[in-house]
Design a protein around this nucleic acid. Structure first.
Lengths: 364, 364
DNA sequence: GACTCGGCTGTTAACGTTCACAACGCGTCG
DNA sequence: CGACGCGTTGTGAACGTTAACAGCCGAGTC
C-alpha cells in the first residue's frame, strides 16, 4: 500500500542533503501516511487519533499528535468525504436580491452550521420558476451536499421542491407547513400580522388598510390573512387590500394614490395602514410626508421585518420583528433531524412587535 | 477490477430473477463503472465522454450518453476533486451583519462564479480580529477550496490576511492596494467621495461637514480623504470630521448634537453634510426632521452606498452608488487570474453619484 | 508487404481517507 | 495451562474518479 519508497532506510527525518526524508515527496501536502511514518505507526492509527477513537495508547497518541504538528498536517476533507459519503456541506438556495429576511436567515444559518462543524454553500436564483430552482437543486446533488435549505415561500419554488426527488433532505424556510414530507421552518407570519393589526385596533383604529405583498408568496398571503381575520374577529369590515410587491417604489406609488383619492373625495384616507413589509411602509411614509399627510397624526403606518434603519425612518417605524436568528438555528435543527431520518414537525418561529412612532391613536 | 464479490454469483441484484442487471448493487448511486458496464465500454471511456475528450467514436459516445441517461448517472464531484486536487469551490469570508455592500458583493460574486462552473462557500465572522479571520482561512484550507475571497477593508482583517500563508490565492475586496502580493478589488471610494463632495461644492456649499465612518476601515478612511482633499483643493478649510460608525443610531445622535450646538450658538449648523454611508445619513435625516431642520433647505445631506430604499428616504437621498455587480465580477476575475498564477494588478471599480432631493443649493 | 502513425479503447495505478478484519500482547479465569 | 477477552495496532480493501500508458486496428508510406 501507499508509498513504495518505504523500501530503504525507514523514517529518517533529516534535512541534510541526500538523506531520505519523512516529509512528503515533492510539494504535495503531507498525508496520513507521512504522519504515520514520522510517528512510527500505521496510517490507521493516525486516523484513529484524528477521530478520537478511544482505543489508542496515550503515548502513541502523543507521538502522532506531535508528528502532525511537526508536519503541519491537515486532514484532507475531500478524501474523507469520498469514503464517508458525507461532505459536511449544506446548500442554501436564496434570492438574487439583498432582501433583509433571507440575508439574515442565511447568516444565522451559517452560524448555526459552523457550530455543528458543517459549512454552507450558497446559490442564488433570479427567479423562482421550477426550472431554475430545480437547476439549483441538481447543482447541489452534484456537489454532494448533505442537505439543502431553500429560503423561499414562493409558490412556484414550493412546487419545484415538492416535485424534485432529492437524495438528501431539503428544508424549506418560509412555508408554514407543506404537503409531502418536506420539513419546513417559518416565521409565524400569521401571528405577526395579527399582532400588528391588533396593535392598531387597540389604538382605536377601525379603518386599517392593508397594503399586501405579492400573493404568489406564502409569506405575503399569511400576513394578509392575519390582518383579515383580525379585522373580522373585531367585527370590522375591512376594505379590499391593495396589491403590492416588496418594493419601496410601489409603496410610494400606492401612498400617492391613496392621498389623491382622498383629495378627489373618491375614497377617504384610512386612519391606519398595515404594510406587508418595511420597504412598502417606507414608500408610504415617503408619499405621505411629501403630500403633507402627517404620520401618525393623520394616518398610522405599520410595517413588517424590522429592517436595518427602520428605527430611523421618519417617523420611526412600528413594525413586526421576526426572530431571524432563531429561524436560522431551527432551520439547521430541522435539517439535522431530517438527515438523521427523523420525521419532521413543521417549526414556527415567533415574531414580536416593535412599537415606534409611526403608529398612534386615530385623530377623530 | 473493483467488486471482489464477482467471485460467486455476480452482483446479482435482480428484479426479474435470473437476469443480471447493469444497475449498481444495493442503493448506492450509479458510478462510472455501472455506466461503463451498461454501455459495454470501460469506465475510462465514460470518463472521456464526460470530459469531452476528442478521441471517442461518435457511436460510442452516444451509447455512453444513453447509458448515463438511463441510469440517471451523475458524476461524483468529490471523487473527481480527490484526484484533480481542485474542488471548484471558492470560500468567501464576510461579516456577520447584513451590511448592504458586502451582501451585494457576495451575490454578484456568486453569480460570476456560477458562470465559470465554480461555486461559493460562505463563512461569516463577527469580529475582524486576526485570530477569527485566520480561523476562517484555516477552515477554508481544510475544506480544500480553490481560492478565498475576503470581503473586508478592516485594518486588522488586512493584517490577518497578510500574515497568513495560504496554499491557495486569497483576494481581498475592499482595500485599494496592498503590500505583498495579495490581489485586491475595491470600489474607488476616494473617487466616489470626491464626486459627492464636488457635487455639494458645485451647488454652492462651502461648509461641508463630514460624518466619518470607523477609521479602522480603509473604506472609511478613503472616503474621508476624498472629502478632505476636495475641500482643500477648492481652497476651503474644512471643519474636523465627526467620527461615527456605520449605524443609523449614531447618525441620529450626531444630527441631534449638531442641531443642539447650533441652538446654543456653540457651532453653526453646516450647510451640507457628507455622511460616510447611507445609514449614517438616514440617522441624520431623522434627527433633522425631528428637530425641524429642513433638508435640503437648511442643510443638504449626501450618503454613500445607495442602499435599498435610499430613493424613498425623506427626502430621497443623494448618494454615491458603487457598482457592486462589477465588483463581484472583477473579484472573480482576480481570483481566477491568481489561480492561474498570473501577477495581480489591483482593480478599482468606479462609483457614480445618484442625485436626489436631499441635496440642493445652500440657503443664503 | 513491412512499417509507421494516429484514432480509439482498455488496463492499471494513483488520490487520501475510513472500514472491516486480523493479529498481537497481556491479564484473567476456569 | 490453555482458552478467552480486551485493548491496541496493523493490513488490505474499498470509495469513484482521472492520469499514464499500452494495445489494437486501419490507413498511409516507402
Amino acid at each position: 500500500m501507499t508509498r513504495k519508497t518505504t523500501s530503504g532506510p525507514v523514517t529518517v527525518s533529516q534535512d541534510a542533503p541526500g538523506a531520505p526524508r519523512a516529509a512528503p515527496a515533492s510539494d504535495r501536502p503531507p498525508a496520513m501516511g507521512d504522519v504515520a511514518r514520522l510517528a512510527g505507526v500505521s496510517h490507521q492509527t493516525v486516523s484513529r487519533v484524528l477521530n478520537d477513537h478511544p482505543n489508542v495508547r496515550a503515548e502513541t497518541r502523543d507521538r502522532v499528535l506531535s508528528a502532525i504538528e511537526q508536519l503541519g498536517y491537515r486532514r484532507n476533507t475531500v478524501a474523507r468525504a469520498l469514503v464517508t459519503r458525507r461532505t459536511g456541506a449544506i446548500g442554501v438556495v436564496t434570492e438574487d436580491s439583498p432582501l433583509y429576511g433571507p440575508t439574515m436567515t442565511l447568516i444565522a444559518l451559517e452560524n448555526a452550521a459552523r457550530g455543528q462543524g458543517m459549512y454552507v454553500s450558497v446559490a442564488t436564483v433570479t427567479r423562482w420558476d421550477v426550472a431554475t430552482v430545480q437547476g439549483s437543486l441538481e447543482h447541489y446533488m452534484d456537489q454532494g451536499v448533505d442537505g439543502v435549505v431553500v429560503i423561499a415561500s414562493h409558490d412556484e419554488a414550493v412546487r419545484a421542491v415538492q416535485s424534485f426527488r432529492a437524495r438528501v433532505p431539503v428544508v424549506m424556510v418560509g412555508p408554514a407547513e407543506l404537503d409531502g414530507d418536506i420539513p419546513t421552518v417559518a416565521v409565524n407570519q400569521y401571528a405577526g400580522a395579527r399582532l400588528a393589526t391588533r396593535h392598531l385596533l387597540d389604538l382605536g383604529h377601525t379603518d386599517v388598510l392593508h397594503v399586501a405583498g405579492p400573493q404568489v408568496w406564502l409569506d405575503a398571503r399569511s400576513r394578509s390573512r392575519g390582518w383579515h381575520d383580525t379585522m373580522l374577529q373585531a367585527g370590522l369590515r375591512p376594505r379590499d387590500p391593495v396589491p403590492g410587491d416588496w418594493t419601496a417604489s410601489t409603496g410610494f406609488r400606492i401612498g400617492k394614490e391613496l392621498v389623491e383619492r382622498d383629495r378627489t373625495g373618491e375614497d377617504r384616507l384610512p386612519t391606519a395602514v398595515f404594510a406587508a413589509n418595511d420597504q412598502l411602509a417606507l414608500g408610504l411614509l415617503h408619499a405621505f410626508a411629501e403630500s403633507g399627510v402627517r404620520v401618525p397624526h393623520d394616518v398610522s403606518v405599520v410595517g413588517y421585518d424590522d429592517v436595518e434603519g427602520a428605527a430611523h425612518f421618519f417617523p420611526p417605524l412600528t413594525t413586526v420583528r421576526p426572530d431571524f436568528v432563531e429561524l436560522g438555528r431551527r432551520c439547521l435543527d430541522q435539517l439535522v433531524a431530517a438527515m438523521a431520518g427523523e420525521p419532521a414537525e413543521p417549526v414556527l418561529v415567533r415574531a414580536s412587535l416593535a412599537v415606534r412612532a409611526s403608529s398612534g391613536r386615530p385623530r377623530s
